[in-house]
Simulated scan of single mutants.
Amino acid sequence: MTATTHRIVVLGAGYTGMLVAIRLARRTRKLDVSITLVNPSARFTERLRMHQIATGQELAHHDIREILDGTGVDFVQGWATAIDPTAQNVSVDGDELAYDELIYALGSTAETTLVPGVAEHAFTLDDPRLAHEFAGKLSALAARGGSVAVCGGGLTGIEAATEIAESHPGLRVTLISSGEPGAMMGDKARTHLRKALDRLGIVREIGVRVAEARPDAVELADGTVIGADLTLWTTGVRVSPLATEAGIETDARGLIVVDPTLKSVSHPMIHAVGDAAAVRQAWGQVHGTCQSGLPTAAYTADVIAAELRGKTVRPFRFGYFHQPVSLGRRDAVIQFTRADDSPRRLYLTGWAARTYKELVSGSPVPTFKASKKMTMNVQLSKGGRATRATV
């Protein structure tokens, strides 16, 4: 590495971190650039499939180094514990890693600190090891007809509850949600969702909040106690405190506040992508999903490569396109949306939806591998008129 080498460090090897590192390596292959990807685990985790792991399904093993092979990206396995934006370095397990530009791609996890007992007694889908442990307990529990509570009626909770109920029909599965499951969908798609929940025998507790998680039960805010041999927590979002602790400007949730080119407004040599970025469009705030995260990663790679060549860049534009939800292995529902994620009339169910959802869930790893050789389009919509206004 020469003294003039432009050093780029990517924190996090989830969907966004992997894509931005690989795409950037290809975009800058003729420039004097070094790219280092930092992640605690050497295995790439398919977060879109964690509910499958939690029911005992075996998924393919994806080694990060193997995916990166041939890109020239250096991989450092370790925990990033601090960022010094003034000195422009990151502490990784006690070692200092210097950067000229930093890409902050640390994702989010379920919020387990606000409700008593959740951290101690509930499982989440944040870690494959915990998902495997949950799956092992499910098998034993199903044999004796036990009960499972899934807390959270968002897309993750719906997918988890239906996967559990389908895989282990002897279990009593209760979905607990403060709002109507699938509330973001249109009426017809939501009707299909309700029928799927009924078909799988999933009990719903709707319009309630969890007050406490216990070893063998969940207590609701109204005092109702629901027996649960296992509790799966899928609600709430928590991001790494690393950015806030470093003095980088963040919002109330800890997301890095970015400008229209996804650079930190307080430290422009730091880029934020995916769940870590507070991204606004003319239609409103982008919420963290793989659908929105991959376009932020691709855009950031392209921006850095363009600016290193002295080119000007245009603001990031994004619009939502769909809400794909699996309902076990044999069913799904796809709600197509406007840019702001509100439902359109078009939707899919049954076999077509299941096939569509499987293509969506399985697309990131092939996209990473293809991105080593070509520039892949990972954005389904730029939002049309809804995103043309300057924000």
Rank of each mutant, 00 (worst) to 15 (best):
I8G: 01
A13M: 03
R23I: 00
R26I: 12
T28D: 08
V33D: 03
F44V: 05
I53L: 11
L59T: 03
H62A: 06
I67C: 09
D74V: 07
F75C: 11
T86S: 11
S91I: 13
D95I: 08
D95H: 12
D100V: 09
I103N: 01
G107V: 05
G107I: 02
E120F: 00
F123G: 01
T124Y: 00
D127A: 01
P128I: 09
L130Y: 02
A131S: 14
G136T: 02
R144I: 10
G145K: 12
G152C: 07
G153Q: 00
G157I: 04
R172D: 11
I176N: 00
S177V: 04
E180C: 11
D187I: 12
D198F: 11
R199T: 15
G201Y: 11
V203N: 09
T224Y: 05
G227K: 15
W233M: 01
R238M: 06
R253A: 07
V258D: 04
D259L: 09
A278P: 01
V286Q: 10
T289H: 03
Q291S: 03
T296E: 02
Y299M: 09
A301G: 15
R314H: 13
Y320Q: 05
H322V: 14
P324K: 06
S326A: 14
R330W: 02
R338S: 08
D340L: 02
S342G: 04
S371I: 08
K372G: 07
K372V: 03
K373S: 09
T375M: 06
N377P: 04
V378H: 02
L380W: 11
L380C: 04
G383I: 12
R388G: 05
T390K: 15
